[in-house]
Design a binder for these strands. Structure first.
Lengths: 332, 332
DNA sequence: TTGTACGCGTTATCAC
DNA sequence: GTGATAACGCGTACAA
């Protein structure tokens, strides 16, 4: 304290009224000179507000976060948060300990003011726990058993539009290869695909990988080829390692067994250079991240009941991997 | 307080001595029942320790963080931190405001106990500022003007070994395309490449993109082709968008101008599927992240002077994009 | 072994 | 407009 009391300093720093312009200026000058910054822990303790938001990305032990989806999401959330004076704390719990870690180190210890949570691996009990607590949170991806705030893409639309895209190009035996049905979005995508196929009385060729790891995906692909007709198109339900495993196995197949078309969920610039270019469903990940961040920031300041639900449309990025099939008489 | 005083509770929670086994158990039971957790802000204020570490990734405005490098780094750091009871705060300042944001919201406000900092865009002044403060930090990538704790890969080794790999396969006109020289690692890689080429009296074909964005990379590539001999191999100094821009431009070239070989810094599984597979320098990013996290955790508990410097070797992931040149008489 | 009192650095509430 | 004073919730000496 160069001249005044701490109460006054506090007012000066926070632009609070009840202080003379001249006094404020003098205080701010001194603060500037001595490079003083308020201690954030003390501030948090006093304000009951940390100015942190948490991003929780639960993931399987083997699954890596290095596909095109998470990095973009993380950076867009970080930026949106930063623009509003919030910092981002990142949590990547393994599936097994997800609950414990979340509950212990987050919910009741007030490390963050709000949470953005990847909902894929959450079960009902965990959501209950969260809702009982007073910490606001928003889900990344709608949860089947919870009616909570969320942002998501329109999974049904995405799968349907890609399926119909393939149908319009003459494909009839379209195989959908998804991750585990325990991930809700996989179920939604499957349903939409199924409906599109059944509407045209076409065979539903779906296999589900038990896990996202390489052996499971390989087994799933084997199942397609060991039962049922040879598919003329393969729709890969996820990018990253999931896709790469499929591509790897596919090129071990004899020429005659190769599907004529292939497409994938999750766009990425590298797909431009894979074969003739890989047609993909593009999720607006950046917008999703921004919306999630905006959502949680809003919830922090308005803990009212109104439900936030933002659903984004996807687009198809057309490349060369799904040529129009030559026998056009097949077409509808 | 169900029975005792708070002092006693504190001891029970922190496994401090000076308390009876029976009392401790009783307290812990009650704590468990009522789901009590210590408030982390209060704890931090009292302990002068937040149990947070910060990861600062400065980046250009246009540059995305979605290459193979950052995601892996972030998740490995997060995990290592979590295993030691620390949480990760992520900062991705744009170049322009880097200093301000760092200084204001981090260094003197005690939001984190330590910092891991991507050194690429740091200037001397910022490092001075950091060193004056009492917050421990470790650099991700050695800084040319600072002799501070760091973890890094052996950039010289990496560039040299890849250059020699190409030479051994018969390439003679090897063009190195790097990002801006203001990034120290680009200079180190260039020097090693240059040395390898000059040792054999071969022409140094190096161009530098002013920025990492697409127009700059395109201009750089043009410069290679407009001056000097047509390269027989192109060594791309970075993956992600940098690489993709190069690939994009390259395939617009007539067949006769195509380089026979191409390779790249930064490995990624998608490279398996680009053309015949793209040979790449693999950085042990996971290990790097772990080491950085371990390093900063060590520094937090031992603010001694001993300098931490960990340098990791890279490996070459050989794929099909650099075939041995047919005119073997070229070889050494 | 247990309880008490104080300090951490800030904001908020009041008298002045 | 300004300055004491009491919280905020926790550790931790030190006294009981």
């Amino acid at each position: 304290m160069a001249d005044v009391s701490k109460g006054t300093v506090s007012k000066a720093l926070n632009n609070k009224p009840g202080i003379g312009d001249e006094t404020r200026q003098r205080i701010l000058n001194i603060v500037e000179e001595m490079g003083y910054r308020p201690d954030s822990s003390a501030k948090a303790l006093s304000n009951r507000k940390t100015s942190n938001i948490g991003l929780i990305i639960p993931h399987e032990a083997g699954q890596s976060l290095d596909n095109a989806y998470w990095p973009v999401l993380v950076s867009s959330i970080t930026e949106e948060a930063a623009e509003n004076g919030y910092n981002l704390m990142l949590f990547t719990p393994r599936r097994e300990g997800a609950l414990d870690e979340m509950y212990d180190s987050l919910i009741s210890s007030n490390k963050t003011d709000g949470l953005i949570i990847g909902s894929e691996l959450l079960d009902r009990k965990q959501i209950d726990l969260l809702e009982e607590s007073d910490i606001p949170f928003i889900l990344l991806g709608k949860h089947p058993e919870a009616d909570h705030h969320f942002v998501d893409i329109d999974n049904a639309f995405a799968a349907r539009s890609m399926t119909e895209y393939l149908l319009n190009r003459g494909y009839r035996k379209i195989a959908l290869l998804t991750g585990p049905g325990s991930y809700y979005y996989n179920r939604m995508r499957l349903d939409a695909y199924k409906e599109a196929m059944e509407n045209r009385n076409l065979p539903v060729l779906h296999v589900e990988a038990d896990e996202y790891d390489s052996p499971s995906v390989t087994r799933a692909l084997d199942r397609i080829y060991s039962s049922g007709p040879r598919p003329d198109a393969i729709f890969a339900g996820a990018g990253g390692d999931f896709l790469y495993t499929i591509l790897e196995k596919l090129r071990e197949l004899p020429e005659a067994e190769q599907p004529e078309g292939i497409c994938v969920f999750d766009d990425d610039r590298s797909l431009d250079f894979i074969g003739p270019g890989l047609t993909a469903v593009r999720q607006p990940v950046q917008e999703l991240g921004r919306a999630a961040a905006k959502g949680i920031l809003y919830l922090i300041e308005n803990p009212e009941l109104k439900q936030i639900r933002r659903i984004f449309k996807t687009t198809i990025i057309e490349r060369g991997s799904c040529p129009v099939l030559p026998n056009k008489d097949n077409q509808i």
